[in-house]
């Protein structure tokens, strides 16, 4: 092994380790819902290559309104799915789409794009 090979190997392994940590283990931003006067828990979510915030905490038994603002034209994010609530919604680009649901049981519910690449979760407490 020459020095270049050692250098490439070490860099490669470090890069692989970084990819694993970055995508699977690093901390993600969490947001709690804001309850409006009418008792609806509202959360604004920006859709741009992912969902921000992508972990949303809401309370059980109160209606939830998710305001998805799709800030891109990329076709990956054109649909949002919340399978546990049987919701599949088209998100028009550069517009806010309201999604309403009523979480009755505590738990973690995933929401994803049409192909399951972009992910977020709704944590019901």
């Amino acid at each position: 092994m020459d020095t270049t090979e050692i250098l490439v190997t070490v860099t490669g392994l470090a890069l692989a380790a970084f990819v694993i940590w970055y995508f699977f283990f690093s901390a993600r931003p969490t947001a709690s819902a804001v309850s409006s006067s009418s008792g609806v828990q509202e959360v604004d979510i920006t859709v741009k290559g992912g969902y921000s915030p992508d972990v949303i905490e809401v309370e059980r038994g109160k209606p939830v309104q998710l305001n998805f603002y799709r800030d891109e034209e990329n076709s990956c994010s054109e649909e949002v799915l919340i399978p546990d609530f049987r919701i599949r919604r088209d998100l028009p680009a550069f517009q806010t789409t309201l999604v309403e649901l009523l979480p009755e049981k505590a738990g973690r519910y995933e929401f994803t794009c049409g192909m399951g690449m972009l992910r977020g979760s709704l944590v019901v407490k």
Binding site: R28, K48, D54, N74, C76, M117
Partner: peptide
């Protein structure tokens, strides 16, 4: 162009997709 912007946006969200 869209592949690169989408990949970058995803990367910022710690998400990776086909792009």
């Amino acid at each position: 162009r869209e592949f690169y912007t989408s990949a970058w946006n995803g990367f910022k969200h710690r998400a990776a997709n086909m792009d």
